Computed example of a mutant assay.
Amino acid sequence: MKPLKRPARRALLVVHVAVSVGWLGLTLGLLTLGITAYATAEPSLTQAAYTAMDVFADWLLAPIALAALGSGVVLSLGTPWGLARHRWVWIKFWITLGTAAATVFALRPEISHAAAAGVPDISLVAAPSVATTAYLFMTAVSVLKPWGLTRRGRRLRRSAGTTSSGKAVDGRSLRRSA
């Protein structure tokens, strides 16, 4: 993919961060509702919490998950980070793909089933807990950018060489910083 121009890259970064933060917030809301539904002794409160979860799942979960995945892929392909050049990007991609698939194909149907049944379900506490942990991990990885280049990234960097400024073709210094 052709590198994105700076205004497009910045706009896409804002979209990606906003959608990703929205996904985290939505998941925290689902976790709160799941805990409420599971912990209460009131059947009507359990039903109300699962119904609220069902509304969020039907209208927001899939679009936000797919928007986070799509914006992340386009952003990675349109920047020097690349999709498979740096381990942190590659790991974020696979975790996002897995959580998006689990959200669409497992969590949404389970929420709909619980809303229809109105019976406490511990899986609707466990799934948002795991998802929240995954999103917080991906946030930390995005900030810290650990682990360096993948094999492909090292090969691309070697084959590209350096520019006259002493920087790699992807704009990053070849020297490691402290």
Results as ranks from 00 to 15, higher is better:
residue 152 R to M: 02
residue 96 T to D: 07
residue 44 S to M: 08
residue 100 A to D: 08
residue 167 K to M: 15
residue 51 T to Y: 02
residue 115 A to V: 11
residue 127 A to T: 12
residue 145 K to C: 02
residue 125 V to M: 01
residue 155 R to F: 09
residue 108 R to A: 07
residue 43 P to K: 07
residue 133 T to H: 05
residue 112 S to V: 11
residue 121 D to Y: 00
residue 125 V to Q: 01
residue 150 T to H: 00
residue 96 T to E: 07
residue 74 V to H: 07
residue 93 F to E: 02
residue 150 T to Y: 00
residue 121 D to F: 01
residue 120 P to G: 05
residue 66 L to C: 13
residue 36 T to S: 14
residue 172 R to I: 15
residue 161 G to H: 07
residue 36 T to A: 13
residue 82 G to M: 07
residue 79 T to A: 04
residue 103 T to Y: 02
residue 154 R to S: 12
residue 108 R to H: 08
residue 108 R to P: 02
residue 116 A to K: 01
residue 120 P to N: 03
residue 155 R to D: 12
residue 149 L to D: 05
residue 114 A to M: 02
residue 75 L to G: 07
residue 57 A to R: 03
residue 39 A to L: 11
residue 89 V to C: 02
residue 117 A to S: 13
residue 98 G to K: 13
residue 80 P to M: 04
residue 155 R to I: 03
residue 83 L to W: 01
residue 135 Y to K: 07
residue 62 A to H: 08
residue 166 G to A: 11
residue 172 R to Q: 14
residue 164 S to F: 06
residue 163 T to Y: 08
residue 161 G to Q: 07
residue 44 S to A: 14
residue 97 L to H: 06
residue 110 E to D: 11
residue 91 I to Q: 02
residue 88 W to C: 05
residue 48 A to I: 04
residue 59 W to H: 13
residue 107 L to S: 14
residue 37 A to N: 03
residue 124 L to I: 04
residue 71 S to C: 03
residue 135 Y to F: 13
residue 132 T to M: 10
residue 102 A to V: 04
residue 128 P to E: 08
residue 115 A to L: 05
residue 118 G to P: 01
residue 84 A to F: 04
residue 79 T to R: 03
residue 79 T to N: 04
residue 90 W to G: 01
residue 61 L to G: 02
residue 71 S to R: 06
residue 156 L to P: 15
residue 158 R to E: 15
residue 117 A to H: 04
residue 150 T to I: 00
residue 113 H to N: 12
residue 116 A to Q: 04
residue 132 T to W: 08
residue 103 T to D: 14
residue 77 L to A: 08
residue 86 H to N: 12
residue 102 A to N: 12
residue 148 G to N: 05
residue 162 T to E: 15
residue 173 S to K: 10
residue 36 T to K: 09
residue 50 Y to H: 10
residue 40 T to I: 01
residue 163 T to H: 10
residue 143 V to R: 13
residue 104 V to G: 10
residue 88 W to A: 03
residue 158 R to N: 14
residue 86 H to Y: 13
residue 148 G to A: 05
residue 117 A to E: 06
residue 74 V to E: 05
residue 42 E to N: 13
residue 100 A to Q: 07
residue 120 P to T: 03
residue 128 P to D: 06
residue 145 K to W: 01
residue 69 L to K: 07
residue 51 T to M: 03
residue 123 S to W: 11
residue 141 V to M: 14
residue 107 L to A: 15
residue 160 A to T: 11
residue 120 P to M: 02
residue 131 A to H: 09
residue 147 W to C: 10
residue 57 A to C: 08
residue 121 D to K: 05
residue 135 Y to S: 12
residue 155 R to W: 11
residue 47 Q to T: 14
residue 125 V to G: 01
residue 62 A to S: 10
residue 164 S to I: 05
residue 99 T to Q: 07
